[in-house]
């Protein structure tokens, strides 16, 4: 474990908690893409199947459980509890265009052709594009609530910090995982446009609005 990965994990945890807090406090999931949250729940459930068979550390197990529980609760909030506030008219990204290619790629490019490894690879590839429905929804509505932009910033920052963690581990531990690195770079690149808007608008106290 290094400081970059720790801050990255905490940023990820913060993002997940910000989203849950926003939905719970405002009792509304307006502006939130249920499809992205469903994909994130899929990412965690396919990545942490070794939760009970491969013990790494108390921290690792604790975080995996938190991620799985929070992502499922978020999906429950959006599609069940606060269903009336879910903006399905703007959440129209075709997720099958993500899941099918990612599933195929996971079969073709992986480290080991075993079920657990292929599911892990699927999860890594899926995570890199899981935010697309959310970014697409914001581009359609033309704006995002400030709390939602803080959520997205923390979520984007987490994988950007993981890239720094991979550079660190390469130079100091000789460890690198090309699949995770490439997917992590793709994931972070997808946030660049949002990062620019967040830094130039939200941090200036303005509302995040995309040029319609």
């Amino acid at each position: 474990m290094n400081v970059f990965r720790l801050i990255g994990d905490l940023s990820h945890l913060l993002a997940i908690l910000i989203l849950l807090w926003k939905i719970w406090k405002t009792r509304s999931c307006s502006g939130i893409s249920g499809k992205s949250q469903f994909l994130f729940a899929l990412v965690f459930t396919t990545r942490y199947l070794d939760l009970f068979t491969n013990f790494i550390s108390p921290y690792n197990t604790f975080m995996k459980i938190v991620y799985i529980v929070c992502s499922c609760v978020t999906v429950y909030f959006i599609y069940v509890k606060f269903k009336a506030t879910y903006d399905s008219n703007h959440d129209t990204f075709r997720v099958e265009f993500l899941v099918v290619p990612v599933g195929g790629l996971a079969f073709l490019v992986n480290h080991d052709f075993t079920p657990l490894e292929i599911l892990w690879t699927f999860s890594i590839y899926l995570e890199s594009v899981a935010i697309l429905p959310q970014l697409f929804m914001i581009s359609k509505t033309g704006e995002a609530e400030t709390i939602t932009s803080h959520y997205l910033f923390a979520l984007g920052a987490y994988r950007a910090l993981y890239i720094v963690n991979w550079v660190y581990r390469y130079y100091f531990e000789g460890f690198f995982d090309l699949i995770a690195i490439v997917a992590g770079c793709v994931q972070t690149i997808l946030y660049c446009d949002f990062f620019y808007l967040y830094i130039t608008k939200v941090l200036q106290g303005k509302k995040l609005s995309l040029p319609a």
Binding site: D50, N54, I56, Y67, H111, F175
Partner: peptide, 10 residues
């Protein structure tokens, strides 16, 4: 091959 132990990242 990547052993399962390598999967120490979240």
């Amino acid at each position: 091959e990547k052993s399962q132990m390598d999967k120490d990242e979240l």
